[in-house]
Each structure stands twice: as structure tokens, then as C-alpha cells.
Design a protein around this nucleic acid. Structure first.
Lengths: 166, 166
DNA sequence: CCTGAAATGAAAGGCCA
DNA sequence: TGGCCTTTCATTTCAGG
């Protein structure tokens, strides 16, 4: 249902802007095969409908001095909804925490964190995360190296899927 | 050392473009307090120096029909460098795998995957990931809900750090 | 390395098909 | 809807401090 309102041109626009979010509208229009004004109208519509949530420059964390990336698996004592969302609120305030996802299974949350160095991360860990209300356990794993870090969604999978149902 | 060549205006540019990658150059120039031409030159320099790796529209995966997000923890049989990079090459080819990071500790890799539905993910899991050469174990965790998903790095931490060393 | 001005080219809106 | 035309505004180059 959700993608029913998107035609192939809309999907191409999303794929192109996911790959290069700073492309000019005339370049985008050329690539998707329509002229510029209707292309811009489609982009605005996609933005307003929430298909496009924003645009972001992808900055090089390492080159900026963030040498450390860590995944933290967090278990809580209480999984009552108010306790879950209290923990989520904390995560939103911690700027070293870039992503916070609630999981099924043994662990309650996985956090992706970045820090300039290990000692900055360690003091966050011991001073903030481990001592936060309701936190029962934290297991951390350092990222040794990153092999792939692609933004967003795979549009090729989406097209395959639509072809099968057509 | 890496950030030594960036002055406060460069850092502001990076922070602004991370927050809104489609901002016009005149708007950006106004925000960082210089006129448009030098601002554009700085952006180009930051791009060429690799501080900015690209620009991406942030598309709403759920609204596009990707209902499922999964973390997969992968253990390999052999951790020889050639086997590690062979596995990384596979991950780069699998479009459901959006991120692949090598970790320290018990597990060798953490993969972040998206899929339209559970059965698509399951068939990837059993047909591709579990049967790939050298894969010893895979533990998967479904994302129940996402509380935070911020792009890039926390510039407030960077500024704090520079203030302390000054 | 910046500002300011001038020319090219893109964005945004009106209007017709 | 998409395409065309017009106005407005951004981008880019160049002269000069």
C-alpha cells in the first residue's frame, strides 16, 4: 500500500537523491526524463509526504578526529513502556550516541556511538551509560574497520519486488 | 592533527551541511558569517579533501515499504585477512546489507540489514548469508523501534574538545 | 583570504495544453 | 499531470583590497 502512490519516476527521483542529495533540479530532471518544473514539484511532494525526511552531508568521522566507533548492547531492569521511553529520551540527549534501536531477543537496545578517542568513550560509558537509571547491563564492541556504510534503502530490491507483483 | 587545518568557519560549514545538505550556498554563507564566493570555495575544498564524502537524501524506509530492519552478528571460521576481506566483498554485493563493520570480541562482524518483509529477509538469511563460504554462525535481532537515528558526528563534542586543548 | 560586482545558469510560479 | 515562459535568485568568475 505505501508505495502505491509512487510511480516509476518518483522512485527514480528518490534513488537519485539518495545517491546524490545535492544534485541540481535540472540535472535530476534530465536523469529521470522529465523537464525541470514538474520534477521540482514531485520533489516537494515527496518531501511533504515524508518520503524524504531530509538531506545530509556525509562527513568523514575519522578525518574529523572521531577515531572510535562502538556498538553498545544495553539491557534494562524494567521493560515497562515508561522505562523504555525514559531510556530512549536519555539516548536522544547523549550526543555520542548516534543511533538507538530497540531490539527483540536477549538485549533491549543497541546503540551506535562515536567518540574522538577511547578515553572519551570510556568516561561516557562509566559516567553516563552504566550509571543511568534502569540500566542493568552494557556490552560494548569496538568497530575495527568498516567495510560498507551505504545510506538508506536498496532501490534495486524495491524494483524487483514491484516487477514480481506486476 | 587531522582537524588542525580546519578553522571554526570550516567546522560550522560541516555542521550546517550535515544538518541540511541541500541548503543553498547563500544561506550557508549567511549562517557561517562570510560572503557566498569564499563559502563555496571552502565547500569545494572540504569535498576534495574528503571531509565531505557525499550528500544523501534521507528516505523513509518504512514508508517506502521496507518494514524490516535487522542486525546480524556474524562469526567466521577463519579470521585470516584474505577470508575477512572475502566476506566483506560479499557484503558489498548484497544490497539488503546496508552496513558491515568488523568488531572486536566474540563476534566478527555486525551487519545492518533492511528488507521489505520478514520472508524476504529470511530467504536472504538462509539462502545467502548462512550458506556463504566461511560463515560459522549468525545471530539476528529484529529492530522493534528506532528511537534515534542521527547522521554523522556530534559537532558539539568536537568544539568542546578543541576548547579544552586551547 | 576576503569582499563586491557582473554574467551565466538554476529555481519557482503562472499559465496553457 | 507535463511543458513553456518569465521573474527572481543563486552560482560562478573576475577585479581589487
Amino acid at each position: 500500500m505505501p508505495t502505491t502512490r509512487l510511480d516509476p519516476i518518483d522512485r527514480k527521483i528518490l534513488a537519485e537523491l539518495q545517491a546524490d542529495g545535492r544534485m541540481t533540479n535540472v540535472e535530476l530532471a534530465k536523469r529521470v526524463g522529465i523537464s525541470a518544473p514538474p520534477c521540482l514539484r514531485r520533489v516537494r511532494t515527496l518531501e511533504e509526504a515524508g518520503f524524504i525526511k531530509g538531506y545530509h552531508a556525509d562527513v568523514d568521522a575519522r578525518e574529523l578526529g572521531f577515531e572510535v566507533q562502538v556498538y553498545a548492547m544495553v539491557g534494562l531492569q524494567s521493560q515497562a513502556e515508561s522505562d523504555l521511553s525514559a531510556f530512549e529520551d536519555l539516548c536522544r540527549k547523549w550526543s555520542l550516541v548516534r543511533e538507538c534501536n530497540m531490539l527483540n531477543g536477549e538485549v533491549d537496545f543497541i546503540l551506535k556511538c562515536v567518540a574522538p578517542d577511547l578515553s572519551t568513550f570510556q568516561s561516557f560509558l562509566t559516567g553516563q551509560l552504566l550509571t543511568a537509571r534502569n540500566v542493568a547491563s552494557v556490552k560494548t564492541s569496538l568497530v575495527i574497520r568498516s567495510a560498507k556504510d551505504d545510506p538508506g534503502v536498496p532501490f534495486d530490491v524495491l524494483e524487483e519486488r514491484l516487477n514480481r507483483s506486476a
